[in-house]
Design a protein around this nucleic acid. Structure first.
Lengths: 214, 214
DNA sequence: ACAAATTTCGGTCTGGAGACGGAGTTTGAA
DNA sequence: TTCAAACTCCGTCTCCAGACCGAAATTTGT
């Protein structure tokens, strides 16, 4: 049986070394190389044409989402396994949309990772249980995040609420009347199911509804 | 010259493997063993008496803070190097208080880690630049976090504010009058330098002032 | 033991927050 | 074209939030 050609993408040297150290002991795996950024990964993937890529998400020079999308655009048969520490909605779903094949957490054991590589080569996906939970709940529409019902304008107002602005300040920022702001705020409160602007602000902050995010 | 006796504590197997893979190639280092939790680390440290410990902070069975404190209580000459992905205030300062000797981030290269081990053995501390920044600002009293001026009761009230409670609800939770709550809230607002309870709630959430975390 | 800080509570007053109802305009989908 | 949703704004009303003032009881530190 053909060896599985594997590539590693991670900006942490010690993580790359750790994975490499046990991939090299696997007879069924051919270790192709490693990249320390998303952009580097795209270049290397063009040359190496790997079967499976272990991909981190947060990296300085080109993140894992974009890299996943680009690599699949020219090398669609590649199976990309996300291997990261995070499993919040803002990581999991964009990664899946980008075309990720499996999603593992860095808490996984060496055995789990190698097993996932072999399964990926056969077309089977492996999803960490914590990530699987999120995916299940996502497909229960009645339980999805309440702020997905918000209109774009309401979303903008909620963002302002999350910054602690008063109605007056919001009206100035968005160039609308205070009465209009009040209407939006009232609608937001009822849609989010919270009692007042303070709870709405907390909601915004805890769900990462912010101007800029790192 | 005597070899430096090193121990690893991390709950991620692949991180342990990664570190081990290059520690074993270092002639000046004697690799003693590894632990995957804080409590396990304490037990192993009693047996191995390491010179240096590479310690992760967030682990399931006994965190790195407590483990650091306990190990130093019976083996004070040990130098403990924190090696983690996080560098927020809630990690850095408790770790230093616990007696950590150095603080590295997992973005560090293999060379930086080995270098830090040798320096630690000689008594020199290594602090990651991002962490050093935080420490510098901490020692500028006029710039320290405003919520450190809060009294314990005010801190409790702020915690409630961070949960979005009304004055009425806070008074019921803390078994005090609404007027008293109002007094505390007013004092909190002026001490934090914010305009209203909403901004105070945002402050609490962004600075990790919560009942329980994670 | 004494001074200082903390915690507690009272009264009063102003302003903003939010609910409720109504209404005109625009935009996009059926 | 028609209709629903989204965005805009008006008036009114109630109530809580917060400022400001004072003050007593308790705790803390020296």
């Amino acid at each position: 049986m053909q060896k599985v050609k594997v590539m590693i993408v991670d900006d942490h040297e010690m993580v790359r070394l750790g994975i490499k150290s046990y991939l090299l002991t696997e007879d069924g795996i051919e270790f192709l190389g490693e990249a320390k950024s998303g952009n580097e990964a795209v270049q290397l993937a063009k040359i190496y044409k790997p079967d499976v890529i272990l991909m981190d998400l947060l990296m300085d020079d080109g993140n894992g989402f974009d890299a996943t999308e680009k690599i699949l655009s020219f090398h669609g048969s590649c199976k990309i396994i996300i291997l990261t520490s995070y499993y919040d909605d803002e990581k999991v779903f964009p990664a899946i949309e980008a075309g990720a094949h499996s999603y593992l957490l860095k808490t996984a054991s060496a055995e789990e990772v190698t097993s996932a590589i072999y399964k990926a080569a056969k077309g089977e996906a492996v999803i960490a249980s914590k990530v699987a939970d999120k995916m299940m709940t996502r497909f229960r529409p009645q339980e999805r995040k309440p702020h997905e019902d918000l209109t774009t304008r309401e979303f903008e107002v909620l963002t302002c609420l999350g910054e602690g602005m008063t109605n007056q300040e919001i009206s100035e920022v968005l160039y609308i009347g205070i009465k209009t702001v009040k209407t939006h705020v009232s609608n937001i409160l009822s849609k989010l199911g919270v009692a007042d602007r303070t709870q709405a602000a907390i909601y915004a902050n805890r769900n990462g509804i912010l101007y800029k995010k790192e």
